[in-house]
């Protein structure tokens, strides 16, 4: 038994060493409390709803979220907008549909089953409108960046004056946390940029946190279900392991040999 424990602690150690080696390039990101971290982590509903507001009023003019649908906004484990509200949100967007019986495309108000409307037709159009830089799709952005939520959260607040000696081209901005410190996106947030319906003060920090929470949910919409199921699964496995352990002891007691 002791041996086995040793084996598995060694296992864990090797795993953690391996993960450490990936995180070699350490940058000190800004820290904040994420409600969705930890064994029982859940999203902060209000933050998700505010985050959606920041996304749709600020980010969505350049960044698409092509894997999300309006119905997701009303689904369990997400912002959980009431269904009527999610329908109203969807209907506020013009969706291209068709072809109709005349073979022509037409627009209509969005429905819950529609995907989020994209700001640009395609990548090329997005690049053309943004001086050659493609504003990345934000559906899985949090998972697509090494630093995850901490990185996004920091980046949004990392705009500073470029240090002396650094020359920036036109349309390039300095960001403390960006890889290489040069970023095409100008500082997207400023205090009071959006007006929150719930009365929360829209500081840059607050908006960064809200929109990052929203992006985390967008990238991992089943996070809450995963945490809940994980806890149950592990408790179950521990109980079964204990039962099997005693059964094993019982069986092996017939032969006098060490287990």
């Amino acid at each position: 038994m002791k041996k086995l424990l040793k084996i598995f602690s060694a296992l864990l150690l090797i795993c953690s060493l391996n993960t450490l080696s990936f995180a070699a390039e350490k940058v000190d990101y800004l820290k904040t409390d994420w409600s969705f971290k930890g064994l029982f982590g859940k999203f902060d509903r209000a933050a998700l709803q505010r985050g959606y507001q920041v996304y749709t009023e600020v980010c969505a003019s350049c960044h698409s979220m092509k894997y999300l649908s309006y119905r997701n906004l009303a689904e369990k484990g997400g912002p959980e907008f009431p269904e009527d509200q999610a329908k109203a949100i969807a209907a506020s967007f013009e969706v291209t549909d068709g072809p109709n019986s005349d073979g022509e495309m037409f627009t209509r108000p969005g429905k819950l089953s529609d995907k989020f409307v994209m700001p640009y037709e395609n990548v090329k159009a997005a690049q053309a409108a943004n001086g050659g830089a493609y504003p990345p799709d934000m559906s899985v952005l949090v998972k697509a960046r090494g630093g995850g939520v901490d990185y996004i959260y920091s980046l949004l607040q990392g705009y500073e004056e470029a240090p002396s000696g650094m020359t920036l081209d036109d349309g390039v901005h300095y960001n403390k946390y960006m890889y290489g410190n040069k970023i095409r996106m100008s500082a997207p947030l400023s205090d009071g940029l959006v007006e929150y319906g719930d009365g929360t003060t829209a500081t840059v920090e607050q908006m960064s946190k809200d929109v990052t929470t929203f992006l985390m949910w967008a990238a991992e919409p089943h996070l809450e279900a995963r945490h809940q199921m994980g806890f149950k699964a592990i408790i179950y496995l521990i109980i079964l392991t204990i039962l099997v352990y005693f059964s094993m002891k019982k069986i092996w007691s017939r032969v006098e040999s060490e287990v």
Binding site: Y236, L237, I239, L240, L243, V244, F246, S247, K250
Partner: peptide, 12 residues
């Protein structure tokens, strides 16, 4: 003990 172990295993 054996019955319980088998039953819990089967549920899983």
């Amino acid at each position: 003990l054996f019955t319980a172990t088998t039953a819990v295993g089967a549920v899983g």
